[in-house]
Each structure stands twice: as C-alpha cells, then as structure tokens.
Amino acid sequence: MHLPPFETLIDAHAAELHRFLVGCVGPTEAEDCLQETFMSALRAYPRLHDADHLRAWLYTIAQRKATDVIRRMARRPTRVLDGVEPVARSAPEPIDDGLWQQVRALPAKQRAAVTHRFVLDLAYAEIGSRMGISEEAARQNVSAGLRRLRREVTS
C-alpha cells in the first residue's frame, strides 16, 4: 500500500479543510483546529491501513476536533465574577448575523453535513463519502440541520 508523503496532504487539503472548519467553529478557532487536525493525522499516519480515503479520513479527524472545540467553548464562562468581562482570547470574530453561531450549535453530524453542503458546495454523495456515511444519510443530516435552523431563525 502506498501512502503519499504527508507534506502533500497539507498542500492538497489544508485550504478546503480550513473553510470547512471556519463553518464548523468560526474563523478564530479554525486555524488552531486545523493544526490539531494535521497533528493528529501525522501521529496516526504510518499506521493507516486504507490509502484510498485519505480525504474522508482527514475530515473525520477535523469533525472530531471541531466537536472538541465546540464543547470547550460551551464550558467556557461568558462572564466572570463581579460582571468583569473575560479577556478575549484573540481577535474578535468578524460580524456575522448569528446564523453561523446557530450552525455551530447543531448536533455534530448535522453541522458537518450543512457545512459541507453550503461552505464547500458539495453534492450529497461526496458529503457522504467524506463523512463515512451513505448519500441518503448525508441528505437527511443536511435536511434535519436546515429544519432545525429554520425553527431557530424564526423563533
């Protein structure tokens, strides 16, 4: 089995994975998340048995890292004692209308599917292959995500 030099994975997939992660966790966290994705991938790389689905494998790791970040953000206090605002970790997020915050609040699979569909503009078959699920399951995850977003946007 032939695995390509790890370097070529970074060159081939970093930009698109980054867009995916911006969709999942926002621009402030995306770059760290991408770095963690590649570090985890590099650690496991020589033990990988399937060279045919490297991209799907990277997206699985990225999705997991995004979920970690979202859990961490949920735990982080938004306000500390005496009403003192916490110090911003890095530059504030660019203004968006709150829609992507709601995307980030979706269950992990729906979030990933919606991001693949609308940030990367992928067909359902491709979304399924990247998420390791069927085309039909990908369609259902996007659809469930959209229904949930519509509920929250209108409520």
Binding site: I10, A14, A15, H18, R19, V22, G23, G26, P27, A30, E31, L34, Q35, F38, M39, L42, E93, P94, I95, D96, D97, L99, W100, V103, V114, R117, F118, V119, D121, L146, L149, R150, V153
Partner: peptide, 25 residues
C-alpha cells in the same frame, strides 16, 4: 429559500495562511 441563500453566502473571515500553518506543524 432565504436560509439556504444565506448559508451559501459563506462565512466571514476565512483566509488561511498556509505558510504559517506549515511552519507550526
């Protein structure tokens, strides 16, 4: 619908510095 159009409009602030990423890795 409107929701899908807004989603497809993408997310703000998404430039990646590939050299910095490679250096960090």
């Amino acid at each position: 619908d409107d929701l899908e159009r807004r989603l497809a409009a993408g997310t703000p602030g998404a430039a990646l510095d590939l050299n910095r990423l490679r250096a960090a890795i």
